[in-house]
């Protein structure tokens, strides 16, 4: 029995590793609960329950998509833990969802930490770029894939081997403010990326356009596509106004958007 659950936990953990990679890379979408339900059902020997639980969890996550890079509760671990819990304990899919969601939130917080921890590696990548070392750049990306695999492998293996219920208690014993705080920090993170862009691109003559973009969203709630089109309109106006005198040279460029 012990050996059987060890083998099952091992197989599910391998699947979690593959699906975890697929969530960010490949994006074949084998990581969705609807697929995971089938695989976990096969591994645990209860295909019908697996398929039905997977479909139920899928609908919970249908609206939780990574819009504008904001990460929803982790769909990979939610699907895997939820389905495994339903099959192993014989609970209804809805109860499985109740176990899966807090777990998935905690896992997503860990991923915030992982994305933070991977930042220093970029300085190594800068060095490889400086040396035109293409193999080095390859290696850094393969290291990232390996890290994702190991992370998901461990996170799926432990709760299934030691019991999904015990894991839920551990998650719930974490102070809520730490998890909420990691979420808040995640929302603020984008500021650093934009600041880096500004450091490269912002010159005095462009501050006006930066202000326009900010105002359009802040006060007029325009979607980014509209903001980009307005930027494009200003840029085209500027482009043709300043090149108007050149006539012949410009004719070829007419009608090309970029």
């Amino acid at each position: 029995m012990d050996q059987e659950i060890f083998l099952q936990a091992l197989l599910i953990a391998i699947w979690a590793g593959i699906a975890g990679i697929d969530l960010f890379n490949g994006l074949f979408h084998i990581h969705r609960p609807i697929v995971t339900g089938v695989i976990v059902g096969l591994i645990l020997g209860d295909l019908p329950t697996g398929v039905m639980t997977g479909a139920a969890i899928e609908l919970v996550w249908a609206g939780m998509v990574p819009l504008a890079g904001a990460q929803p509760p982790n769909v990979v671990i939610g699907g895997i833990i939820g389905t495994a819990f339903a099959i192993l304990t014989g609970q209804e899919p809805q109860v499985a969802i109740g176990v899966a969601v807090p777990f998935a939130v905690a896992v997503q917080a860990c991923i915030t930490l992982m994305f933070t921890a991977f930042s220093p590696v970029m300085h190594k990548a800068d060095k490889y770029a400086e040396e035109a070392n293409t193999k080095g750049i390859d290696k850094i990306n393969y290291l990232g894939i390996l890290t994702l695999f190991v992370f998901y492998f461990v996170v799926a293996f432990l709760p299934i081997y030691f019991g999904a219920d015990a894991a839920k208690n551990v998650v719930e014993s974490l102070p809520a403010w730490i998890i909420a705080g990691l979420g808040t920090a995640g929302g603020m993170m984008a500021a650093i990326g934009f600041a880096m862009l500004l450091k490269i691109m912002l010159k005095k003559q462009y501050i006006a356009y930066f202000i326009v973009g900010f105002i359009l969203v802040t006060y007029l709630q325009m979607p980014i596509i509209a903001v980009a089109l307005i930027g494009l309109a200003i840029a085209m106006y500027d482009f043709y106004k300043t090149t108007g005198g050149q006539g012949a040279a410009m004719r070829g460029a007419r009608g090309r958007g970029i």
Partner: peptide, 20 residues
Amino acid sequence: AASIVGLTVVGGLIASFVQL
């Protein structure tokens, strides 16, 4: 021209995606 579009978009992106 591309910098104009880029900076306009970055201004908008900050307003929509930085949450604080």
